[in-house]
Simulated assay, not measured.
Amino acid sequence: MPLALEEQEQVDRLKDFWSKYRNVITGVVTAALFAYAGYSGYQWWRTSQTTSASQLYETMVTAVGKGDKEQTLRAADDLQKEFGGTPYAAMSSLVAAKIAADAGDAAKATDYLRWVAKNASNSGYSALGKLRLVTQLIEQGAAKDFAEADTILKEKPIIGFEALWLERRGDWYLAQAKVADARASYEAAWKQLNEVKEFPEEARRLLKVKLDAVGGSSR
């Protein structure tokens, strides 16, 4: 059945439009499809990464339970290299740092903590890495270690860790026999800690011991 004149004009306009813009339209649709495929692929990759990382982390936990230091540290290294964007990498490096420190390998422990401080995908793990790194550096006690710890402590504390930041600054002062400065930092930390009720009681007890040691007030 022949098209009406008006309908034929619409068809002709559509053909003309498609002739002019088909490359653009095809490009946009193709780009959208690639974008969707890329997003879906990324979601699959991220899920796959997390699953694989969790399996490797379980291997590490088993090694820790067996007291196998070499396998523990190897698993932590593999998590850093292959799954650095997952929380498991930071978790494993914190554990590995403790094991290395307990084994007397301060340099290795420091390396793990530096990695967490710089690369942790979670701000909480990053804060823990920095705080433990400061403690490790203070224990090492060289001038360059104190300087590195000072640089970290001058950073803005991650929200929720302000009290611990002040406590570590007190430790930094005390290690250099600056008792008055240490006392001031501990008292400021105590005040902050009392404003954050969810902090573990053990953290309060430890800080109070430090305050008492320098003649500070915990009121």
Results as ranks from 00 to 15, higher is better:
residue 207 L to Q: 13
residue 120 A to M: 03
residue 191 K to T: 15
residue 177 A to G: 04
residue 33 L to P: 12
residue 195 E to T: 13
residue 11 V to T: 10
residue 216 G to W: 01
residue 38 G to L: 10
residue 64 V to E: 12
residue 55 Q to L: 11
residue 174 L to K: 04
residue 51 T to M: 07
residue 41 G to V: 11
residue 82 E to F: 00
residue 40 S to H: 13
residue 18 W to Q: 11
residue 181 D to C: 04
residue 56 L to S: 13
residue 79 L to G: 06
residue 73 L to F: 02
residue 55 Q to E: 09
residue 35 A to S: 15
residue 193 L to Y: 08
residue 14 L to M: 14
residue 152 I to L: 14
residue 113 L to G: 08
residue 115 W to E: 05
residue 214 V to H: 02
residue 191 K to C: 03
residue 170 G to L: 06
residue 194 N to L: 09
residue 31 A to K: 09
residue 84 G to D: 06
residue 41 G to P: 08
residue 17 F to R: 15
residue 190 W to I: 02
residue 42 Y to Q: 15
residue 30 T to C: 12
residue 40 S to M: 12
residue 46 R to L: 03
residue 217 S to G: 04
residue 136 Q to H: 04
residue 207 L to I: 12
residue 18 W to A: 14
residue 170 G to C: 08
residue 128 L to H: 03
residue 92 S to H: 01
residue 135 T to F: 00
residue 153 L to K: 10
residue 8 Q to N: 07
residue 70 E to A: 14
residue 169 R to G: 03
residue 156 K to Q: 12
residue 48 S to D: 15
residue 140 Q to K: 11
residue 208 K to Y: 06
residue 209 V to P: 01
residue 77 D to G: 04
residue 153 L to M: 06
residue 146 F to Y: 11
residue 64 V to R: 09
residue 142 A to S: 15
residue 204 R to S: 12
residue 206 L to V: 14
residue 182 A to N: 05
residue 62 T to M: 07
residue 133 L to F: 03
residue 1 M to P: 10
residue 26 T to V: 13
residue 77 D to V: 03
residue 172 W to S: 10
residue 169 R to P: 03
residue 134 V to D: 06
residue 164 L to P: 01
residue 33 L to F: 12
residue 146 F to S: 08
residue 196 V to F: 02
residue 34 F to T: 15
residue 20 K to Q: 15
residue 134 V to L: 04
residue 50 T to I: 09
residue 46 R to W: 02
residue 92 S to Q: 02
residue 56 L to Y: 03
residue 20 K to T: 14
residue 165 W to C: 10
residue 116 V to Q: 04
residue 93 S to I: 01
residue 127 A to V: 05
residue 81 K to F: 00
residue 201 E to H: 07
residue 161 F to M: 12
residue 189 A to H: 11
residue 190 W to D: 14
residue 219 R to Y: 01
residue 181 D to S: 13
residue 66 K to T: 09
residue 135 T to M: 04
residue 112 Y to C: 02
residue 190 W to Q: 14
residue 125 Y to V: 01
